[in-house]
Amino acid sequence: MELVKPDIGLIFWMVVTFSIILLLLKKFAWKPILNMIKERETSIDNALKSAEQARKDMQSLKSSNEKILAEARNERESMLKEARDTKEAIINEAKAKAKSEAERMIAQAREAINSEKMAAISELKTQVATLSIDIAEKILKEQLSSDEKQKIVTGSLVQEVTLN
């Protein structure tokens, strides 16, 4: 049958034409197209990779930020604590100082009072002594003003001595 008999002319033209388009397309179409597709693929690949890298960097940055923040917070906390401590210490010290001062003053006052009291007491004693002497003098003078009275006194005195 005619249909399945290959025609020599068509074979010839087909070989020529197909070889030419194969070579021309290879040089001017497939090479540049495939290269560009490959280039694009690698660039997309790289972009994806760098995006991933950036994401990781971001994450590490974030975590380091958090770390710094936490550190800062700790620092603040510790500073506050220190300040509080210092305040407390200062207050305590002041209190202690005030207390000791007050005690010292009180002691001083007490001493002063004591010495004043002593002085007053000794003066009183002297006064009382003088008064007593005066009184005794007066009594004696009175008792011994007459002979009779002198006898009674001496008699009682003598009696007392013998009894002992």
């Binding site: 002319g9 033209w13 388009i21 179409a29």
Partner: peptide, 29 residues
């Protein structure tokens, strides 16, 4: 017989069509 028959003409046409199509695609790239 090396005539430019109907099929040979169609072949040449498709060859030029392909060259035009894919060189313009390559140019776009």
């Amino acid at each position: 017989d090396f005539s430019i028959t109907k099929n040979v003409l169609a072949l040449l046409f498709s060859a030029f069509l392909m060259l035009w199509l894919f060189t313009s695609v390559a140019k776009a790239y």
